[in-house]
């Protein structure tokens, strides 16, 4: 791991920009310590802007998600709240990208770290879950397994089709977003979505005090708005900073791969692989393919699982008991 970190830092030097390949994700410092070198990890933003600062060679120490302290160029550090793209730009998407996610069901043990991270970053209360982890069992004879389900960001999104005011839209980079400043709250998209991906702000959402003065952007969906629909957004604000969505970085088991279909590369923060090869080798599929919605989220079957299935229901019941 130490070696990997070192390699990765090497990879982050300006020279790597010369590798003629098109831009891929810049994972940024959080993911930096976890990435494997040599798979063309570059930046969304051109490195030129920062080259002067880099030349100065100033470095800072940052903590990675798995608790390692690493040293990176100060210029690579982007503050999370610095990102707020205006609505018009948020509708366009990041040029040249087509974001995809691959969820490896064989690695999921229902740790729910993804969900907690999602809730935290999107200021969601406990009952509004953008990301759900379903207990699935096809039939009585087959084994149960956990299935995390974000929004599928379909290429033929039924929700976008029915929206009367273009409040939910499909971007060039494949992401489906909601403009909560335009949404009229008719909830047709909720009825149209076959995957129950959308949730509604039935009452005035609680905005944490420190976020009260944030500017709204469809890319952050915050501050949340009463009477409008929201859903998993693939965290476009952090992607723009070259990082991975929160669920991907939060998962301790590397369930989530995220990446760019145009680059044919996805990473779970730990391993970076060819998308096509991953789907071929592990028999990837999309949920309810027959509906023709063309999801951007693939699943790898729950075969050769690394964790035994442990049911959650007891935990849920306890929770409900303590509530009542």
């Amino acid at each position: 791991m130490e070696d990997q970190n070192k390699n990765n830092e090497d990879n982050k030097t300006p020279e790597s920009n010369e590798s003629g390949r098109r831009d891929f994700l810049k994972f940024g410092v959080l993911a930096a310590g976890l990435t494997v070198a040599g798979v063309g990890l570059q930046k969304v933003f051109s490195g030129e802007k920062n080259s002067d600062e880099k030349a100065s060679g100033e470095k800072v120490k940052v903590l990675t998600t798995d608790g390692k302290l690493i040293e990176v160029y100060a210029a690579d550090v982007k503050k999370a709240d610095a990102c707020c793209v205006p609505s018009a730009e948020a509708r366009q998407g990041i040029p040249g990208k087509k974001f995809v996610m691959v969820i490896d069901l064989s690695r999921c043990k229902d740790a729910l770290k993804c969900q907690k991270s999602c809730e935290k970053h999107h200021q969601l209360p406990e009952q509004d879950k953008w990301l759900k982890v379903f207990k699935m069992q096809e039939s009585e004879e087959t084994a149960p397994y956990w299935m995390p389900k974000p929004c599928f960001h379909c290429d033929h999104p039924p929700c976008v089709k029915v929206c009367p005011v273009d409040a939910t839209f499909k971007r060039t980079d494949g992401i489906v977003l909601v403009d909560n400043e335009r949404c009229i709250g008719c909830r047709f998209c909720m009825a149209a979505c076959p995957y129950s991906a959308r949730v509604f702000n039935w009452s005035e959402p609680v905005t944490p005090a420190r976020h009260e003065n944030d500017t709204y952007s469809p890319e952050t969906s915050t501050p949340r708005k009463k009477g409008t629909v929201e859903k998993c957004d693939f965290c476009p604000d952090v992607i723009r900073q070259g990082k991975l969505p929160h669920c991907v970085t939060a998962c301790p088991n590397g369930v989530y791969y995220f990446g760019d279909q145009n680059e044919d590369t996805v990473t779970n923060g730990d391993t970076t692989v060819r998308l096509s090869q991953l789907l071929r080798d592990k028999a990837g599929y999309r949920y309810l393919e027959s509906l023709g919605t063309e999801p951007s989220v693939y699943y790898l079957p729950a075969a050769n699982r690394i964790f035994p299935f442990k049911d959650r229901e007891i935990k849920d019941e306890k929770k409900e008991e303590s509530k009542s």
């Binding site: 089709k161 029915v162 929206c163 009367p164 005011v165 273009d166 409040a167 335009r182 949404c183 009229i184 709250g185 008719c186 909830r187 047709f188 509604f200 702000n201 009463k226 009477g227 409008t228 629909v229």
Partner: peptide, 26 residues
């Protein structure tokens, strides 16, 4: 009454999109 944001009803006319059955209904 069913709308979450009745205050934005004019959006139907400002941003209305013909592929939505709701617009057909209106």
């Amino acid at each position: 009454v069913d709308m979450g944001r009745p205050d934005r009803i004019l959006n139907m006319f400002i941003y209305g999109r013909i592929q939505s059955p709701i617009v057909w209904d209106v």
